[in-house]
Nucleic acid binder design. Structure first.
Lengths: 168, 168
DNA sequence: GTCTATAGATGGATAGAC
DNA sequence: GTCTATCCATCTATAGAC
């Protein structure tokens, strides 16, 4: 499992014996790790999306701030683990994180529309899903290529599409 | 490993003992599985991208034909496996597949530009990376949500951006 | 509360019968 | 060439000293 007691917690300082004083076992430990990752990712995204500037500025800020590209998203990574998605309790934080992100992106896009920064006929919900997907997919392409370029190109591409025919 | 001898091959009919007559071990077995997946994914994508129609039609055909969304892309899934990306021999087929896909998408987009179906100032390389990323990221969002809607929304969104201001 | 064993389960790999 | 049986490494979890 991506959140294995051995890999994640033993290497976090303490021995595996003492770990079982704090957590009942593998699944409880995984839940704590998943929740922590979800909260961190959410906080980092919000910091960019709540910044001042136009809608496109804030979304560009969010897209450009991603780092550790080859390591992948701390939440998205977990979505590939069958042992996590199979257990509703462990999958829920992932679902909540991405739902929140898409909703937040949709809000920013709507504000941009209201200010005339973006096309009025833009489907904000679908576009928000696209932006979230580009980030997650960019990680996948970059891991496959063992290089950051695919991630960066994908980001440029979606920003280009978003601002096409409209300089904001 | 995602391509474990037990999970993938023992359940493919034969016992694990006889398996070692055909493959030297875990890594050789994984290589065969990775190459097979890569070839299949590539062939399926080419079938859609080589179809008749406008550039947007063919890309829409490619995007809409994705299925088994909750299971994920047979190639993209492997990019999350540390045991695969760490071994160059196993990672190469992934890199080649996504490089080929992005190149092929870029060709289709260029054709669309030449025919006046797409904006002349579209960055075809970046847009191709974006489209590939949306597919891979759509899988991630859908697995996290345990539902196909996020994948479909992300697809709709990128198609909307591609055709915005231009009915093709 | 944290440590060092250590038990039990699982997965990868080999041996040898057929 | 495929099967069963078995070894070995790894990982989860527990026991008990300190």
């Amino acid at each position: 499992m991506a959140t294995s007691p051995k890999a994640i917690q033993e290497r976090s300082g303490v021995g595996q014996g003492s770990m079982y004083h704090h957590f009942a076992g593998k699944s409880e430990l995984a839940l704590a790790a998943v929740r922590r990752n979800a909260a961190e990712v959410r906080a980092e995204a919000e910091a960019e999306l709540a910044a001042p500037g136009t809608a496109v500025d804030r979304i560009a800020g969010y897209l450009h701030r991603q780092r550790d590209v080859l390591r992948g998203c701390r939440v998205g990574r977990l979505a590939h683990d069958p042992d996590i998605v199979a257990i509703p309790t462990l999958r829920e934080p992932l679902e909540e994180t991405f739902e929140w992100l898409q909703g937040r992106l949709a809000e920013v896009l709507s504000e941009g529309q209201a200010r005339g920064e973006l096309r009025a006929d833009l489907d904000v919900e679908a576009t928000a899903a696209t932006i979230a997907a580009v980030v997650q997919g960019g990680y996948v392409l970059s891991r496959a290529a063992n290089a950051v370029e695919p991630f960066n190109r994908a980001i440029e591409g979606v920003l280009g599409l978003l601002t096409a025919g409209r300089r904001s």
